[in-house]
């Protein structure tokens, strides 16, 4: 039987992979995908905690699942807005390469 630690390690690994994607890839779309991976890693640990800590009534902690539901909703909104921003950015700069987007620097 898998233990809580199994799930948490998977979640941590998933988060680290997402972070690595954000840190190393220079295509802004891939960076965005890395962010999605990180969000889902958090979801996984939330669901795992809810399953491994049932309430007094013997049911899993559904509040955590509601939180995951909210995260998914917000993430969907975030993706829509983020991608719209990327499109607008691409229209202005003709690039999705983050190293070419450095006008904010000193």
């Amino acid at each position: 039987m898998p233990t809580l630690a199994h799930y948490l390690y998977v979640s941590g690994a998933l988060f680290s992979i997402g972070l690595l994607g954000v840190l190393l890839r220079r295509n802004i779309l891939i960076i965005f995908m890395g962010l999605e991976l990180m969000l889902n890693a958090a979801n996984l640990s939330l669901v795992a905690f809810s399953r491994f800590h049932p309430g007094l009534d013997g049911l899993p902690g559904y509040n955590a699942q509601v939180l995951v539901f909210f995260i998914i909703t917000v993430a969907a909104a975030e993706v829509a807005v983020g991608l719209a921003i990327i499109v607008a950015l691409f229209r202005a700069k003709q690039t999705v390469h983050v190293e070419d987007l450095d006008t904010l620097k000193f």
Binding site: T3, L4, L8, L19, L59
Partner: peptide, 24 residues
């Protein structure tokens, strides 16, 4: 750094090695 932090957190978490409790 992240991997170390996660490993330390999980290893110090009480009840991390529990298996899934029974639910209805």
């Amino acid at each position: 750094g992240f991997l170390v932090a996660i490993a330390r957190v999980i290893s110090s978490l009480p009840g991390a090695t529990n298996t899934k409790p029974e639910i209805l």
